[in-house]
């Protein structure tokens, strides 16, 4: 097996693709609008189950963007994002189940709850670098299902049984099925969250985040408050994942402790690596991958999806550490007739 060059390996910790040189497909903007147009008509063309699956792809994509902000742009590592996803999902489900909150209003609440929790978890995590942070977040992810099953909280969380939510109808008498409406609702949230992430990364704050990732010492000497930015990034990352969790709960209509095991964290990590670390649109490739490939693997044999995930992660780390981002960039450059470095 050829040893990947160090330069290639660097690419994963370093800007897989820094935001400025994001892969510019032929006419960047036109591609975005074309994709969006396709996304808008798609639910009218496909069956409702596929619409449901596409909605889940978007949900995963939001969560992966959250993880990407943390890992790809700030260089912190988390195996514990299943915990934030679970918190978001449970906040939404409990609000709808116990106090009859409208479903759309649960998203900000779930986001804020996760931001606070992520920020607080990020505070001690400041002292933990690299592998220690991975360890602490790993412990968080493994412990989460047990916390959700805790019997004193059973009135709110529904214990092992979880909570069942009813599916919202399309408002204003729009001629849409429930699945279609949820798809458009999720699409709207996704577009907003993606734009916000894009702007965040392109802002002064985003540059500070990346400076911390690339060289903490240099960043500090330039006057960047590392502690503040790292905890804030942790909070924002948790917020994204929490909103995704809340959306996921609404779309699936069900939350239960065993949906949020450590394997959910693995799923998000796979999505991140497949999409490309440090490239926001990669989240959509990652989301599609983690939704459709395991289904396909399970159809061959139960229990095979984990193996596909594992093989995929290892192969990508070995051969294409930049994920879909690197692939898209290579293709664009070839189309433009440039030499690939």
């Amino acid at each position: 097996m050829p040893a990947p060059s160090e330069e290639m390996m660097e690419a994963i910790a370093e800007p897989a693709v820094p935001e400025v040189s994001a892969p510019r497909l032929v006419g960047h903007r036109s591609v975005i609008f074309a994709t969006l147009a396709i996304a808008l008509v798609l639910p009218f063309l496909v069956q409702s189950f596929l619409t449901f699956q596409l909605t889940l792809v978007l949900v995963y994509a939001i969560a992966i963007i959250g993880l990407n902000l943390l890992t790809g742009f700030n260089g912190q590592f988390s195996l514990g994002h299943s915990a934030f996803y679970a918190l978001g999902a449970y906040v939404a489900a409990m609000l709808m189940d116990k106090v009859n909150f409208p479903y759309a209003a649960t998203l900000p609440v779930a986001g804020i709850a996760c931001f606070v929790f992520g920020f607080l978890f990020g505070l001690p995590a400041l002292r933990l670098e690299g592998v220690y942070l991975a360890l602490a977040t790993f412990a968080l992810a493994v412990a989460t299902p047990q916390i959700l099953k805790l019997s004193p909280l059973e009135y709110w969380t529904g214990g092992v049984q979880g909570i069942v939510i009813s599916k919202p109808d399309a408002p204003y008498g729009l001629p849409l099925t429930q699945d279609q409406w949820l798809y458009f609702f999720t699409l709207l949230v996704t577009v907003i969250m993606t734009l916000l992430a894009h702007n965040l990364v392109a802002s002064r704050t985003g540059r500070a985040m990346m400076a911390i990732r690339d060289n903490p010492t240099a960043a500090r000497s330039m006057g960047i408050n590392i502690a503040l930015y790292k905890s804030l990034t942790f909070g924002v990352s948790a917020l994204y994942t929490g909103v995704a969790g809340a959306l996921g709960a609404i779309v699936v209509q069900f939350v239960a402790p065993d949906s949020f095991t450590f394997f959910l964290s693995i799923t998000l990590l796979v999505g991140l690596v497949v999409g490309g670390v440090g490239w926001i649109p990669g989240a959509f490739f990652g989301g599609a991958f983690v939704l459709f490939v395991p289904n396909f693997a399970e159809s061959i044999s139960k229990g095979l999806s984990g193996a596909v995930y594992g093989v995929m992660i290892i192969l990508l780390i070995f051969m294409l550490p930049t994920g879909a981002a690197g692939l898209v960039r290579a293709v664009t450059q070839r189309l433009r007739g440039q030499n690939i470095r």
């Binding site: 390996m9 994963i12 195996l79 592998v131 690596v273 594992g310």
Partner: peptide, 13 residues
């Protein structure tokens, strides 16, 4: 010689 992220990802794999 790869960075921490690659190692963690490979172990998770």
């Amino acid at each position: 010689h790869a960075p921490v992220l690659s190692h963690v990802a490979v172990f998770i794999g």
